[in-house]
Simulated assay, not measured.
Amino acid sequence: MKARPGATPAPEGAYPALSQPSYSLLSARSPGGGRKSLTTATASCPSALTTPPAWLKLIKPLIDQLLREKHRHWGVIFVLGLIVAAGCASAPPDEEIPSAESYYRRGLELLEGQRVFLFFHDVNYPRAIEYFQEVIDNYPYSDYATLAELKLADVHFQQGHYEEAASYYQDFVELHPTHPQVPYSIFRHGMCSFEEIGDVGRDQTPTLDALAQFRVLLDRYPNSEHADDARVRLGQAIDQLARHDIEVGDFYYRRGDYYAASRRYRQALEMYPDHSERVTTLVRLGRSLMGLQLYAEAERIYQQALDARPPGGLRNNDRKELREFGEDLWNARKEAS
């Protein structure tokens, strides 16, 4: 390369010719003659090793001119500086790690849902479950992890997944027996079974499970804010179980099997003495005993029915059945004598 007028010629070989300018230089000479590694130059900005941005093409003529000058090492350093600066500028900032509280509150916000077309309420349950699970997995010793466990049970309950919800509520009670939300968990566990109660003619396992949970709640936490609701549900579960036995007794009675019918009526009275149809059950038991010609025992049952004092008082239907039963018993005794 021809030197400029007045310039001191450079020693031969001091600046080896570059066959073609390159933007992927892996090393460059420093002003002191040593070799400076690009890895060292960009250690603080790893993203500088990525493909240079498109705007470098716009200043390519300037870079070419610098690389052809006598002090081309300054041009190389300039290029490296641009690449490092571009890499640092494009490096994403460190993201703040979400806290247990932020995950938990995001889950709650999703459970609130959003209204669609003014009529439908859309709730992203899977996403809410993910947020609550993040709290449990990443912050297992946080207070929010305990609350997230309970919320997972609630989410399954709201979706109608009662078996899964019951399992979560049971785990919560066992893992946190002194937590203030234990009464709530017991009540909701009972409600999981209560929601699965079917017709009186079907299997009554869900009814028995609900009955057991409500009784546990009332025995342990009689003054809980959920106690009143539990008493109402308990009464409904008791009536369901009693009606199951009564319907079976009615079936035998219609067939004329008064002994089998009387056994079912007795079972309903002994196991569920507080069921709301106690007077009706006593009357049907008495009629079954009349069918067996056990008039003395039938009279004793008739007297119990007269003495019964249901919480809501005798219904009109109860009074009618009692009156008719008394008349039929009187006539039967009269004919037998």
Rank of each mutant, 00 (worst) to 15 (best):
E149Q: 11
R264S: 00
R68G: 02
Q159F: 04
P11M: 13
G198D: 10
Y144T: 07
E174H: 13
F157S: 03
Y162T: 10
Y272A: 00
I197T: 06
S167K: 04
T146M: 11
A10V: 15
D64L: 15
L82T: 12
A308T: 09
I238W: 00
A242Y: 10
Q170T: 14
W330Q: 12
L111D: 01
Y258C: 09
H275N: 15
D137F: 15
R284N: 09
Q181Y: 13
A28K: 10
R106S: 13
Q204R: 02
K2E: 12
K334D: 00
L82H: 11
E109N: 07
A128R: 05
I186N: 01
D137S: 13
L306S: 02
L234M: 06
H161L: 07
S193M: 14
G235Y: 09
T39E: 03
V173S: 06
R72K: 15
G34W: 11
Q159D: 02
G113A: 04
G81D: 02
N331G: 12
Q20C: 08
T8Y: 15
L289R: 00
Y144Q: 10
S224Q: 14
Q65K: 08
P180V: 14
E101Q: 04
R323N: 01
L241P: 02
G312Q: 07
A91V: 08
R309P: 09
L306G: 05
Y272F: 02
T207L: 08
L82Q: 10
H73S: 07
L211D: 01
S337T: 07
Y259S: 11
S102P: 07
D199Q: 10
G13W: 09
S142L: 11
R233A: 07
A148C: 10
L66F: 07
E112R: 02
G291M: 08
D219E: 05
K36L: 03
P16K: 14
R35F: 15
D94F: 09
E195D: 11
R287H: 01
A298H: 03
F194R: 01
G291P: 08
E195I: 13
K334F: 05
E96W: 06
R72T: 11
L329E: 13
Q293R: 08
L211C: 03
L218Y: 13
L234N: 01
Y253F: 15
Y302T: 06
P5N: 08
L234E: 02
P46W: 07
S24N: 01
H179N: 14
F172M: 14
E101K: 06
S44H: 09
K60C: 00
I63D: 09
L152S: 06
R284I: 12
P140R: 14
R333C: 00
P180D: 12
A7F: 15
M290W: 05
S27I: 09
T39M: 08
D274P: 12
P177T: 13
V248P: 01
R220Y: 09
Q204N: 01
R4G: 06
F325I: 06
R266W: 00
A145N: 09
L269Y: 08
F132L: 02
A145Q: 14
S37P: 04
P311F: 15
Q304H: 08
F325P: 02
M271L: 11
R202W: 11
E134F: 10
P61F: 15
Y125A: 09
A210L: 12
V123K: 05
T178V: 13
Y184W: 10
Y104R: 12
Q159H: 01
L269T: 05
R4T: 06
G81A: 10
H71K: 12
G33P: 13
